[in-house]
Write a protein that binds this DNA or RNA. Structure first.
Lengths: 230, 230
DNA sequence: ACAAAAGTGTTTACTATACACCCATGG
DNA sequence: CCATGGGTGTATAGTAAACACTTTTGT
């Protein structure tokens, strides 16, 4: 940062924000995509996002573009990675600050005013995406699986109140493996990050109703990783 | 990314890369800083870095600016985080893609042609930095401590050949705590990521000479974190 | 012979994993 | 009364942590 001058306008890249929003729906991990209505890649699916404004922070830009394009708001969002290889956008040099987001399955997305298509797509089976957005989703999925194992970010995939079975199912869906019911429940309850309610999920069909829990917001939620070297 | 058009030049932010380069020197964790020779913040220390070129990737820009300003090259480098709050640079909207880097203590930095000062500063005791660079260093330090515990990135703090005691000391310096010698050596040797040489460090002063080891480059180096929920 | 740093194993406590049955409700 | 999903405890294996002395070299 000691170079004499800020670069001339012509030497500046454009900067976008793009959001990878995951949600578990009908027992599948899905990602929210929009369909491009203009060149380049017209008709191809891509991540919601767009160019930021000079007056807003990157986080604000990500939230704003997500809401403008898909009507989704008030969800968990964190910065993922910045993608900036020179020819990733055919229009010129575009740097994309990618975000990673999670939503419960009661969060609904709607096409925006311009009538652009918006839909949830199952992650293991995505169409070819515009730009390098396929690569960005892949990177985000790694991050999701990773964080699920050592933080409590997984609660962001569930609505305010949920049953332990619902929580376990969300974990299993994302991780792609089955977990032991007793061990899962013991660990999560011992972690002290849930508070139980006195409400129960009325069973649809048969079966005993399940107790509903809530996530304690300001719970300490990070587990110390096992050290490589003690 | 469905907005109709790429923004006009006047609506584009400037994008810099800034590098937080850590090294353990004379038993202290240090970070490499340069002294600003121009306004704003003239005379204040800041991170090496600068504006990227349209034709180069962000990683390339970070490596190039680091070499141009400090003559440091061929070191470990990874992207850290992108800082983009609107008023972080008084010259206008500047987004900084920050990098995290590590070097052994045999890597030397030199002032560049323009004669800008370059120096290693002990991390626990930094001067007030230009821009939000203090915050960036703080964020990088968290990342360093974190990664040290569950990856083998710590080897990047050491030269090609090193003794186990030197390795342990580097870890202790960064983590700010003492480690058990026998446990440390057992774990690291069992991990199978070091190969022993037949050379020894001639002891300066008294004491038995210590065997030199090398880090096996393509060793699998990540340890599975302890799960929050099994 | 002594000072200084290198090198080496074992015991104990804790944490993870595997595993099977009873309970409450609706039809 | 039966089908469905909810809820619970224990025994075993594996990993982490604490801990002290012998070896090699230079002075």
């Amino acid at each position: 940062m000691t170079e004499a001058e800020i670069p001339a306008l012509a030497d500046r890249p454009a900067v976008t924000v793009d959001v990878v929003l995951f949600s578990v729906r009908s027992s599948n991990l899905k990602v929210l995509l929009v369909c491009r209505s203009a060149a380049p890649f017209r008709g191809r699916w891509c991540l919601p996002g767009g160019f930021g404004r000079l007056s807003e922070s990157l986080d604000d830009a990500a939230r704003r573009r997500l809401q403008e394009e898909t009507d989704v708001h008030d969800i968990y969002l964190e910065q993922l990675y910045t993608f900036g290889t020179p020819r990733r956008d055919p229009r010129g040099r575009v740097i994309s600050v990618a975000y990673f987001a999670l939503a419960a399955d009661d969060v609904n997305a709607h096409a925006n005013a311009e009538g652009v298509q918006v839909d949830w797509h199952p992650v293991p089976d995505l169409p070819e995406l515009a730009f390098d957005h396929g690569e960005i989703v892949h990177y985000a999925l790694q991050r999701l699986r990773y964080k699920l194992e050592y933080t409590s970010v997984g609660f962001e995939l569930l609505p305010n109140e949920f049953t332990l079975t619902e929580l376990q199912t969300a974990y299993e869906t994302v991780l792609g493996e089955n977990l032991d019911k007793r061990n899962f429940r013991r660990r999560i309850l011992e972690a002290g990050i849930l508070s139980e309610t006195n409400r129960y999920r009325e069973s649809e069909g048969q079966g005993r109703p399940a107790r509903l829990y809530r996530y304690k917001k300001n719970a300490v939620s990070e587990v110390k990783a096992r050290r490589l070297f003690p």
